[in-house]
Amino acid sequence: MSDRAVPTPSRSRPPRGTVDPRAPRFAAAITSVLLLITVFFGLTGLSTAQASDGAWLITQASVTERILDPGFLLLLLAAVLFLWSVAWPRTAPWGALYRKAVAPRLAPPTEWEDARPPRFAQGVGLFVSAIGLVLQLFGVPWALPIAAAMAFVAAFLNAVFGLCLGCQLYLLLQRAGILGRARPASV
């Protein structure tokens, strides 16, 4: 059992402040696909393009052209989804899809996970995406695909291996006394 897991009492509803640990992995799988496509468009788009004289095209592009770049629009979509998951986790699309379409087809979870670390991880994804978006607006070459790639790696590790980097960062900051207090193990 991980540091975040809470044993499941025999009840139909999850304990308050917990989530099925399979839900964040499901969301991470969908998010990683979106971010992989974003990385592709970032690498083939305005962010990495050079003119024949070797100058970066992004530095010569207008702000409107930078915004309309497909990589920018996809990373903006990812950032909006991260924001949605942080601000309104009960209505976030991937969580709602999991609860309505996937969870009913699975056996009930054997344990629940504290909801704070996955929510913090979504905030980290939002932060990384926002940095990439802002740097793209300022015309920094390669910033957008690098930010998208960093977010992709984190989402991929969570989806495939169950390693949530943002959750681990949350637990590290919690143990250092920087973030919230630990919840008791029993609910």
Rank of each mutant, 00 (worst) to 15 (best):
Q50S: 07
A79K: 03
G139T: 07
V153A: 15
L179E: 05
P24M: 07
R25W: 02
V80H: 03
F120Y: 15
W56A: 13
A148E: 13
V102D: 09
L144I: 01
R11F: 01
D53W: 07
L133N: 11
L34W: 09
V124H: 09
L77I: 12
V134A: 15
T48G: 04
L137M: 14
V86G: 03
A27K: 03
L83I: 00
W84I: 00
F138G: 06
P108I: 04
I146P: 06
Q50L: 08
A121W: 13
L173F: 15
F41R: 07
P145L: 10
V86F: 13
L74K: 05
Q136F: 07
F72E: 07
F82L: 04
Q60K: 14
A176H: 10
L165F: 15
P89W: 06
A78L: 02
L34G: 07
A5L: 05
G162S: 12
L77R: 04
S10Q: 13
R22E: 07
L77M: 14
L157R: 07
C164F: 12
L126Y: 13
F26I: 01
C164I: 10
P21A: 08
V19F: 04
M1N: 01
P89T: 02
A107I: 00
P14E: 13
L36K: 06
I58V: 09
K100P: 00
W94N: 03
R105T: 12
L35K: 02
L169A: 15
P21V: 05
P70H: 13
A130V: 15
Q122P: 03
G132I: 09
G71W: 12
R90C: 00
S186Y: 08
V187N: 03
G125K: 12
T38P: 04
R90W: 06
T59E: 15
F156D: 01
Q136W: 09
V19S: 06
A148Q: 13
T48Y: 06
R181Y: 12
V63R: 08
T59H: 07
G123W: 11
L133S: 10
S129E: 10
D3M: 02
E65L: 07
L171D: 15
L35Y: 06
I131N: 09
R90S: 13
E65C: 00
A115N: 11
A61P: 06
I67D: 02
F72L: 03
A148C: 13
Q122T: 01
P184E: 12
V80G: 05
T48V: 06
S2K: 11
I58Q: 02
A130I: 11
L74Y: 07
A79I: 01
I131G: 08
G162W: 09
D114Q: 10
A27R: 02
V128R: 10
A149Y: 12
Q174Y: 13
Q122G: 09
A148V: 11
P9D: 09
V33P: 03
G177D: 12
R116H: 12
T64F: 15
F152Q: 04
V128H: 11
F152E: 04
A49Y: 02
G54H: 04
A79N: 08
L83P: 00
